[in-house]
């Protein structure tokens, strides 16, 4: 009789333990997805700014056609990557495309240096503020995302959670500092 009670107690404790750990993992995964959607919003904001920027710069620097084409292509690729990205590998794909776009952006901003009229125009100054704010937002939401990923990855790997965390993918950090960004040749910034 006593043994039965002990067994019952053990089962209850085990079930409780399972529920707590499982819910913790779900919460961590939701946090990751949630902070990813934050990044998503900010990347969209970045993509939306680009046509406007290109138009403004084109008004002053018509013959930089190659640059405009490159940034338009990079934008299209980044938007494509963003809409296609899913699951654990998504962050890596998006980061690659965004790095290329970042390089193109750097190129266009560097070119602006050569056109004092452009640099002084109110429209360009407003765009500059919007762009630097967007870059900050991406940076901050990226920080939040990487923090959340760190929590999830740690939580699913520690013992004893690793016994039941098979259904939870390990996630990748969102890194914007890979080769792509620096590989694009551009004027000295």
């Amino acid at each position: 009789m006593t043994a039965l009670w002990i067994l019952l107690g053990l089962v209850v404790v085990l079930a409780f333990w399972f529920v707590v750990i499982y819910n913790g993992l779900v919460a961590a995964r939701n946090e990751v997805d949630n902070s990813w959607s934050q990044i998503d919003v900010q990347l969209k904001r970045r993509h939306d700014l680009i046509p406007n920027l290109v138009e403004t710069v084109r008004g002053y620097a018509k013959h930089e056609q190659q640059l405009f084409e490159r940034i338009t292509e990079a934008r299209a690729a980044a938007m494509q990557a963003q809409s296609a990205a899913t699951g654990a590998a998504g962050a890596v794909v998006v980061a690659k495309a965004e790095n290329l776009l970042g390089g193109a952006l750097a190129g266009i901003m560097a070119v602006a240096e050569a056109y004092p009229d452009l640099k002084a125009s109110n429209n360009f100054l407003a765009l500059q503020e919007e762009l630097s704010s967007t870059e900050n937002r991406i940076g901050f939401s990226r920080q939040a995302f990487n923090d959340a990923v760190n929590v999830l990855n740690t939580r699913r790997e520690v013992f004893p959670a690793n016994l039941i965390s098979g259904g939870f993918e390990r996630r990748e950090f969102f890194q914007l500092d890979e080769v792509g960004e620096r590989a694009v040749p551009s004027a000295e910034v």
């Binding site: 503020e129 630097s132 991406i138 914007l176």
Partner: peptide, 8 residues
């Protein structure tokens, strides 16, 4: 504010 690349 003038240099969007810096945050990278």
């Amino acid at each position: 504010a003038a240099d969007p690349v810096a945050s990278f």
